[in-house]
């Protein structure tokens, strides 16, 4: 098997006495689409923060393309091809949508080329996301669901090798969720990215990813084929014990 593009080795994060992430290992290879699910407070977003350099892990290491980036600032991760979205869209509100996408192209994406240059233009990325008509609109004026899409566009502008998506489907309608999921698969297929996708809506994620990892109280309790993981007693227990079985949560 090929070298993992993104590797977390025993990553832990402690806030004072609270252990938010507890010794998590995760390997993601190029072209893989991996989902991460878990009940509220399972440590999903905190784990993502360590994968993008926003937060340094208290213990453990994060490797991107074989390079140890543990403790490096976020721009070092970006330069290595890690791009992410945030759960609450963090677009540059005053800038036009197109400049939000251009931002990544000017910095992290400046030195790196995709296999085929489909996403070298901010205009192409906006078109791909169906945002071409609002290119000149300040990002703060877009609807929340369009800001979510723009977040993906900003990450794509950074010409990533690894795309980290934090609950891009939250607050979207069923149709919108389906459209974003299709989009994410298309991006993965066209650019050969490694995609890690956190989602609270379990059913959505299960339908679109080939592999899913489950976090519970900071620990990884399952990792594998979505159908097998859904039947895993530990996973069922985690969801039942905390907030009901997975299917009901998704509804």
């Amino acid at each position: 098997m090929s070298e993992p593009l993104l590797a977390a080795r025993g990553v832990s994060v402690r806030f004072g006495g609270l252990v938010a992430v507890d010794g998590v290992d995760l390997d993601v290879r190029a072209g893989e689409l991996v989902g991460i699910i878990g009940p509220n407070g399972a440590g999903k977003t905190t784990f993502f923060h360590t994968l993008s350099g926003v937060l340094a892990p208290t213990a453990g290491r994060v490797l991107v393309g074989g390079d140890d980036l543990t403790g490096k600032p976020p721009h070092a991760y970006a330069a290595h091809g890690v791009a992410r979205t945030f759960q609450t869209p963090r677009v540059f509100k005053e800038m036009p949508a197109i400049d939000n996408v251009r931002f990544g192209l000017e910095f992290a994406g400046r030195t790196r080329q995709h296999a085929h240059d489909a996403f070298d233009e901010a205009e192409t990325i906006l078109e791909f996301l169906g945002l071409a008509d609002v290119a000149a609109v300040p990002a703060g004026g877009l609807t929340p669901s369009r800001q979510r899409l723009l977040e993906i566009g900003m990450a794509l502008g950074a010409r990533p090798r690894v795309l980290l998506l934090d609950e891009v489907a939250a607050g979207l309608t069923h149709a919108e969720v389906d459209a974003s999921a299709q989009l994410i698969r298309r991006v993965r297929d066209e650019l050969g990215l490694a995609v890690v996708w956190i989602e609270h809506a379990v059913r959505v994620l299960m339908n679109y990813v080939e592999r899913v990892a489950v976090l519970h109280q900071g620990r990884k309790i399952a990792d594998g084929d979505p159908r097998a993981v859904a039947k895993d007693p530990a996973v069922v227990e985690a969801y039942l014990g905390e907030e009901g079985e997975p299917e009901r949560r998704a509804a």
Binding site: R84, E94, F103, E106
Partner: peptide, 22 residues
């Protein structure tokens, strides 16, 4: 200038897009 505007708008976001803010 673009980097500075990004920093002013959301410094951490700018960093995750490759800006060496410091």
């Amino acid at each position: 200038g673009l980097a500075l505007r990004g920093i002013g708008s959301d410094e951490e976001r700018a960093q995750t897009l490759g800006v060496n803010a410091r």
